[in-house]
Simulated scan of single mutants.
Amino acid sequence: MDLNISNKKTALVIDSFDNVAVALTDLKQGEECIIRFNNREEEVTVFEDIPFGHKFAILDIDKDESVLKYGEEIGRMMVPVKKGSYIHNHNMYCERGMK
Protein backbone atom coordinates (compact mmCIF):
# COMPACT_ATOMS: atom_id res chain seq x y z
CA MET A 1 0.00 0.00 0.00
CA ASP A 2 1.45 3.36 -1.06
CA LEU A 3 0.96 5.80 1.80
CA ASN A 4 2.78 8.67 0.13
CA ILE A 5 0.40 11.44 1.17
CA SER A 6 1.80 13.95 -1.29
CA ASN A 7 -0.62 12.63 -3.91
CA LYS A 8 -3.39 11.42 -1.58
CA LYS A 9 -6.32 13.27 -0.09
CA THR A 10 -6.35 13.40 3.70
CA ALA A 11 -8.78 13.55 6.60
CA LEU A 12 -8.32 14.50 10.22
CA VAL A 13 -9.12 12.36 13.27
CA ILE A 14 -9.22 14.82 16.14
CA ASP A 15 -9.10 12.47 19.16
CA SER A 16 -7.97 8.86 19.51
CA PHE A 17 -11.49 7.89 20.73
CA ASP A 18 -13.23 9.33 17.63
CA ASN A 19 -15.07 7.06 15.22
CA VAL A 20 -15.31 9.77 12.54
CA ALA A 21 -12.80 11.76 10.53
CA VAL A 22 -13.15 15.24 9.05
CA ALA A 23 -12.52 15.68 5.33
CA LEU A 24 -9.70 18.18 4.68
CA THR A 25 -10.83 18.58 1.07
CA ASP A 26 -13.92 17.65 -0.95
CA LEU A 27 -14.00 13.87 -1.37
CA LYS A 28 -15.81 12.14 -4.22
CA GLN A 29 -17.54 8.78 -4.03
CA GLY A 30 -14.99 5.98 -4.48
CA GLU A 31 -11.94 8.11 -3.65
CA GLU A 32 -9.39 6.93 -1.14
CA CYS A 33 -7.96 9.20 1.51
CA ILE A 34 -5.42 8.84 4.28
CA ILE A 35 -6.41 9.17 7.91
CA ARG A 36 -3.92 9.35 10.73
CA PHE A 37 -4.79 8.21 14.26
CA ASN A 38 -3.30 6.25 17.14
CA ASN A 39 0.21 6.63 15.65
CA ARG A 40 -0.73 4.93 12.38
CA GLU A 41 -2.05 5.74 8.93
CA GLU A 42 -4.88 4.03 7.14
CA GLU A 43 -6.52 4.38 3.75
CA VAL A 44 -10.29 4.73 3.71
CA THR A 45 -12.46 4.60 0.59
CA VAL A 46 -15.48 6.89 0.87
CA PHE A 47 -18.86 5.59 -0.28
CA GLU A 48 -20.45 8.98 -0.95
CA ASP A 49 -19.40 12.52 -1.85
CA ILE A 50 -18.20 14.22 1.34
CA PRO A 51 -17.79 18.00 1.38
CA PHE A 52 -14.77 19.69 2.93
CA GLY A 53 -15.14 19.91 6.71
CA HIS A 54 -17.77 17.18 6.93
CA LYS A 55 -17.54 13.84 8.76
CA PHE A 56 -17.29 10.24 7.62
CA ALA A 57 -17.11 6.98 9.55
CA ILE A 58 -13.66 5.47 10.12
CA LEU A 59 -15.25 2.20 11.25
CA ASP A 60 -18.69 0.61 11.10
CA ILE A 61 -21.16 2.35 13.44
CA ASP A 62 -24.42 0.67 14.48
CA LYS A 63 -27.89 2.21 14.79
CA ASP A 64 -28.18 4.25 18.03
CA GLU A 65 -24.41 3.98 18.59
CA SER A 66 -22.59 7.16 19.64
CA VAL A 67 -20.85 9.31 17.04
CA LEU A 68 -17.60 10.44 18.65
CA LYS A 69 -15.75 13.60 17.60
CA TYR A 70 -13.36 15.59 19.80
CA GLY A 71 -13.42 12.49 22.04
CA GLU A 72 -17.04 13.33 22.93
CA GLU A 73 -20.45 12.11 21.80
CA ILE A 74 -21.85 14.57 19.28
CA GLY A 75 -24.88 12.45 18.38
CA ARG A 76 -26.12 8.96 17.62
CA MET A 77 -26.74 7.10 14.40
CA MET A 78 -30.30 6.80 13.06
CA VAL A 79 -29.18 3.89 10.88
CA PRO A 80 -26.13 1.64 10.79
CA VAL A 81 -23.30 2.89 8.56
CA LYS A 82 -20.18 1.30 7.14
CA LYS A 83 -16.64 2.63 7.32
CA GLY A 84 -16.31 5.37 4.69
CA SER A 85 -19.95 6.53 4.94
CA TYR A 86 -20.92 10.20 5.14
CA ILE A 87 -22.18 11.22 8.59
CA HIS A 88 -24.43 14.26 8.82
CA ASN A 89 -27.93 15.24 9.96
CA HIS A 90 -29.53 12.95 7.34
CA ASN A 91 -28.40 9.87 9.29
CA MET A 92 -27.38 11.17 12.74
CA TYR A 93 -29.44 12.69 15.54
CA CYS A 94 -28.52 14.61 18.68
CA GLU A 95 -30.61 14.22 21.83
CA ARG A 96 -28.96 17.23 23.53
CA GLY A 97 -31.05 19.66 21.52
CA MET A 98 -34.23 17.63 22.07
CA LYS A 99 -34.15 17.79 25.88
Rank of each mutant, 00 (worst) to 15 (best):
E65G: 05
M78I: 13
K28D: 07
I35R: 00
D62K: 15
N38F: 03
G71L: 09
N7K: 15
Q29E: 13
D26A: 11
I61R: 00
K9L: 09
L3R: 12
E95R: 13
S16V: 09
D26P: 02
E72K: 15
Y93H: 10
L3M: 13
V13S: 10
V67H: 02
P51G: 05
F37P: 01
S85I: 01
G97E: 14
T25W: 08
D60C: 02
M92F: 04
I74W: 02
N39I: 04
E31R: 01
D49K: 11
V79A: 10
S85L: 01
D18A: 07
M1V: 06
I61K: 00
H88T: 08
H90Q: 12
K8G: 01
G30Q: 07
V81D: 05
E42T: 12
N38W: 03
T10A: 10
I74K: 10
M92C: 14
I14S: 06
A21D: 04
A57C: 09
N19R: 09
D18M: 04
S6M: 14
E43V: 03
H88Y: 07
L3V: 09
E48L: 00
V67M: 07
G71A: 11
P51K: 08
G84K: 00
K8C: 08
E73I: 08
R96I: 13
C94A: 14
E48G: 01
S16Q: 06
V67S: 08
M77K: 02
F52I: 15
Y70R: 04
D18W: 00
M98R: 14
I58F: 00
Y86A: 08
F47P: 00
V44E: 09
G97Q: 14
N19F: 07
N39H: 11
V81H: 07
S6Q: 15
I34P: 05
L3H: 12
A11T: 04
E73L: 02
F17S: 05
V44I: 15
V13D: 12
A11Q: 04
E43A: 05
M92D: 11
M78F: 10
E65W: 02
S85P: 00
Q29C: 09
C33K: 01
I74Y: 05
T45D: 03
Y70G: 09
K82L: 11
E72I: 13
I87D: 01
R96A: 15
A21C: 03
P51N: 06
G71H: 06
M78R: 13
E95F: 08
R76Y: 03
V20W: 00
V81G: 06
L27C: 05
G30S: 06
Q29F: 03
P80H: 12
E65D: 11
N4C: 11
E42V: 09
A23D: 04
D62F: 05
K82W: 04
V81F: 08
D60M: 01
G97P: 00
D60T: 09
A21V: 03
M1C: 07
N39G: 11
G75F: 00
Y86N: 13
A11K: 00
A23T: 01
M1H: 07
N91M: 03
F56K: 01
M1P: 03
T45W: 02
R96N: 15
K82E: 10
E72A: 15
E42I: 06
R40E: 13
T25K: 07
